[in-house]
Simulated scan of single mutants.
Amino acid sequence: MSIIQLTNVNNQSLPSGVTFSDNTLKLLKKTIFKDTLTIKLNHRELTNLNIVVEPSVEAKLILELNDTDSSDVTYDIDMKLMENSQVKFLLISEVQSNNAKLNFKSSSLADSNMEFIGGFVNNVMDAKLFLDLDGKGANLRVRTITVSSTNHSQKLDIHMTHYAPFSSAEMTNVGIAGQNGIIKINGVGQIEQGMNGSSAFQTLKGIITNDKAQIDVNPILIIDEHDVTAGHAATVGKMEDEVIFYLRSRGITLEDAQRLIINGYLQPIIDEIDDELIKENVAKIVNERI
């Protein structure tokens, strides 16, 4: 794994095939990165970042937002995937601000493929993700986990918009709220007129551990073309009393029983992370928040 600490990037050597200047990180064309690239944004020395993935690049990227400051903050992250780029991108957002905003925008060009995995374990955040498919044959797959607990409130808006024909996008978003935590997830799949042969699917799931927690999930499809395939599903519910009772009858505490059930929902998303160290770290962060 190669770690890129952008707060002191001038004092480190970047991996081969990577450049950084004017808040723009570039992965140079026709480079195949065997090691995972981990980008760390700490201490708010950099809150505005552009990531450009040039043509025919293959890479695994991790972006960590680790912010312990409680004051207001806004992060602006832009990503461009150029033709035939293949990227697995993991965003871990652990921001302790009481008023945080995250604006993430991506553009996927022809025949590019992005797998986006997001872990949101912030205190109070309004996150907006605009994921555009701008090239024919672009493919996007999104998986997110959002967890809120005591006095936490998170809003996640995800917009997948098709501006090119024969493009495909699919998302699965899971929200988990405990104590008096609040989560709102809006998932929007939009296919513009003339973008024939495209597909858009989304699944939103909300889980609450008690009556004080709040979750609101809203799947939205906006379709302006006939020759497409699309669908959505959404569920919100409290853990089943029968399952809790069964686990507790086996000597498991209420807290551990809830964790077992929640991890059953999370595991398919966590399994998407193929780096064992990162997988363990994400699972640890989520379970601490639960």
Rank of each mutant, 00 (worst) to 15 (best):
I273A: 04
N139R: 10
T150M: 08
L156N: 12
I145G: 01
L46S: 00
T47V: 12
I191S: 06
V188K: 11
H159P: 00
G251S: 09
S85P: 01
Q193H: 15
Q12C: 03
R141C: 04
N173T: 09
D256M: 09
V282M: 10
N139G: 01
M125N: 10
V236N: 07
I4W: 08
R248M: 15
T235V: 14
N11E: 06
Y75I: 05
I208S: 07
K184Q: 13
V188R: 11
L6D: 02
L61G: 04
V52C: 01
S167E: 03
K30F: 04
R143E: 13
L140D: 00
T19R: 03
P15G: 04
S198A: 12
Q190D: 11
L27F: 07
T229L: 09
Q5S: 13
D35G: 01
A230M: 04
N287F: 06
K30H: 13
T38E: 14
V282Q: 02
F89K: 01
M171S: 15
A110T: 08
D157R: 09
E288H: 13
R44L: 04
N98H: 11
D211A: 07
F33K: 02
I269A: 06
A100S: 13
G251R: 10
P219N: 08
I32T: 11
I207V: 15
E276K: 14
G197K: 08
E83C: 00
I4P: 09
T7P: 00
D126H: 07
Q190C: 03
H162K: 09
S153I: 03
V286D: 01
L109F: 15
A257V: 10
G251V: 06
A233H: 06
I220M: 11
Y75K: 03
L90F: 13
Q202R: 09
T74N: 05
L14S: 07
M114R: 11
I4R: 05
N180K: 12
G135F: 03
A59V: 07
M171C: 11
Y163I: 01
P165N: 06
L109T: 03
I183K: 02
K212F: 08
G187N: 07
T68C: 00
N281E: 15
G264P: 08
N84S: 12
T19A: 05
A234V: 07
A200C: 14
F245R: 11
F89N: 02
I145H: 04
S93C: 07
E242V: 06
E225Q: 13
N42S: 02
N186S: 13
F130N: 14
D67K: 02
K284D: 15
Q258G: 02
S107E: 14
L156A: 08
E255N: 08
I223Q: 05
